[in-house]
């Protein structure tokens, strides 16, 4: 490969990355929801999503990624922390110990009877924090060049 040429031929990587990106995202969401009773959860799901974003970053560049997904990842970290913190705090208002979660069975349209659990909101916070932190680290290291 001619290193001097800026126009590196990475058609295969770019084409594959776009397809694989969605597969990884879907799998990461699956992992995220699997989390309560089986292996998975916000941390793993978040890492997987961040991996998908890093794949895009490798195949294209940071400007393209910023144009496609215009998120401020530091704010995303903060938002995740807010969600996690508020979910942990809600139990205080019911006079229960910090971090106590609530759950109940609900009859949802289309899905039938499902259990809804506040732990999922906490996990969503973790998910956002993990993506935010990973992407902030990658961007800080990557952009200095």
């Amino acid at each position: 490969m001619n290193r001097k040429n800026d126009q590196v031929n990475d058609v295969i990587l770019q084409t594959a990355a776009v397809i694989i990106f969605f597969i990884i995202i879907v799998f990461s969401i699956n992992l995220f929801f699997a989390g309560h009773y089986s292996p998975g959860g916000g941390f793993i799901g978040g890492l997987m999503t961040a991996a998908a974003l890093v794949l895009l970053l490798l195949a294209f560049d940071s400007k393209t990624l910023a144009a496609v997904l215009p998120f401020d990842y530091r704010k995303m970290t903060a938002l995740g922390l807010v969600i996690a913190m508020l979910t942990s705090l809600h139990s205080i208002f019911w006079g229960r110990p910090f971090l106590t979660h609530a759950y109940d069975k609900f009859d949802l349209p289309l899905l039938g009877e499902q259990t809804l659990h506040t732990a999922i909101a906490f996990d969503l916070g973790v998910y956002l924090v993990v993506i935010g932190v990973t992407m902030t680290i990658i961007q800080t290291i990557g952009e200095s060049e």
Binding site: R96, P97, F98, L99, T100, H101
Partner: peptide
């Protein structure tokens, strides 16, 4: 002494 058992 006060104790809190997190998550009950």
């Amino acid at each position: 002494i006060m104790t809190v058992n997190l998550g009950n």
